[in-house]
């Protein structure tokens, strides 16, 4: 461990703003890259199921 305490860890030797803002941005980009395709898949599946149902009603 290169820090003496948890508050020491959060302070990052006075560079807290730079370090934590970088990693917060990183978290947003990583999570976004996983969540967006998940939402798209959900939307796509729902759309196609709706289309199949519509075709069934018509025929």
């Amino acid at each position: 461990m290169s820090f003496d305490s948890f508050s020491d860890f959060l302070a990052m030797g006075g560079h807290a703003f730079y370090v934590w803002s970088s990693f917060a941005l990183g978290l947003i980009v990583l999570v976004g890259n996983v969540v967006l395709p998940m939402l798209e898949r959900k939307k796509l599946m729902a759309e196609q199921l709706r289309r199949i149902r519509r075709e069934e009603v018509q025929s």
């Binding site: 461990m1 290169s2 820090f3 860890f9 990052m12 030797g13 006075g14 560079h15 730079y18 370090v19 970088s22 990693f23 990183g26 980009v29």
Partner: peptide, 24 residues
């Protein structure tokens, strides 16, 4: 990288941004 790696002797702890910057 964030908690156990030693700080850089010139840049101190701001060097830890490397662990996000270099891989991306």
């Amino acid at each position: 990288g964030l908690a156990f790696a030693p700080p850089d002797y010139q840049q101190g702890n701001s060097f830890r941004i490397i662990y996000l910057h270099v891989p991306t």
